[in-house]
């Protein structure tokens, strides 16, 4: 694709802190290369703001190669912007045309309060993982890869679920701010493997309880989460989560 430069208007959500009301500010940015990543465009805008003596825009980012799950912008009405199966850092400016206005908002969910500008507090996800997203074993030395036979289909599905990077785009896209796609990926990943089996029941019950405590909504199977997920986590994981929850609650000891 041919390289081109563009001038844009970036309309960004500015909010000083979690108690501030916040509002949109529009900034013109000039000479943006079509080969830049979206975050690099924000870097250019921030340098411009610093030179003008203004506060730069706060935003989350880390690896900038699409694997860490830190970037979290809601761009033109879609988490991580217009491209499918993509993170904000891997969104390139060729997705936009000269003269476009780009609207950038933070994830919106009560369970993800805005810390500043485009940064939200996603520690609710950490607490859900702490409630059961692990296996309790002393790992010791690495065991022989073939010592535990695992069905190939299960291994593949578990790996596909383990692709979740916990970015929270599913919550941002869901009309109910539900964390079910995230939770179901974590539950599926371990439920499908023999290592996850001993804590299978307590895991799903505790993780769902923690998700509810954090203030996420309930799932209504609209599919918006799957459509926006940068790692293409399948919504069939949610059905598996429901299955796991039903089985665990029906067969609970007390």
């Amino acid at each position: 694709m041919e390289h081109y430069n563009m001038n844009l208007t970036v309309k960004v959500w500015r909010q000083k802190n979690s108690s501030d009301k916040g509002k949109f500010e529009s900034y013109p940015v000039k000479n943006i290369s079509s080969e830049m990543s979206f975050l690099e465009m924000i870097d250019v805008l921030n340098e411009q703001l610093i030179v003008e003596g203004k506060e730069p825009i706060a935003f989350d980012h880390d690896c900038r190669e699409g694997i860490c799950g830190m970037c979290s912008m809601y761009i033109n009405g879609k988490p991580h912007g217009p491209w499918a199966a993509n993170t904000t850092c891997q969104l390139h400016m060729r997705a936009f045309k000269d003269g476009d206005t780009v609207v950038v908002e933070p994830w919106r969910a009560s369970a993800f309060p805005v810390v500043k500008d485009l940064m939200v507090d996603r520690s609710a996800f950490d607490r859900i993982i702490q409630a059961g997203g692990y296996i309790s074993v002393n790992t010791g030395n690495a065991v022989d890869g073939n010592s535990l036979p695992i069905n190939k289909d299960h291994a593949d599905s578990a790996f596909a679920a383990a692709m979740c990077i916990g970015c929270g785009a599913c919550v941002a896209a869901c009309k109910n701010s539900s964390a079910m796609l995230f939770l179901s990926a974590k539950v599926s990943h371990l439920a499908l493997l023999p290592q996850g089996d001993p804590e299978r029941k307590s895991r799903v019950l505790n993780m769902v309880a923690q998700m509810d405590k954090e203030g996420f909504g309930a799932c209504t199977n609209t599919g918006a989460c799957e459509a926006t997920c940068p790692k293409e986590i399948s919504i069939s994981n949610i059905a598996r989560l429901n299955q796991e929850y039903l089985r665990a609650s029906l067969t609970a000891e007390k």
Binding site: F24, E105, K175, T222
Partner: peptide, 30 residues
């Protein structure tokens, strides 16, 4: 009750909505 509870989970809405791109309108309008 679920509808009211789910609606309360996002106090501040989006300026640009995801709309029909990610889900069918009737699935969001139950």
């Amino acid at each position: 009750m679920l509808e009211l509870s789910n609606r309360s989970k996002r106090k501040v809405g989006y300026a640009v909505s995801y709309g029909n791109e990610g889900s069918k309108w009737y699935s969001r309008s139950m």
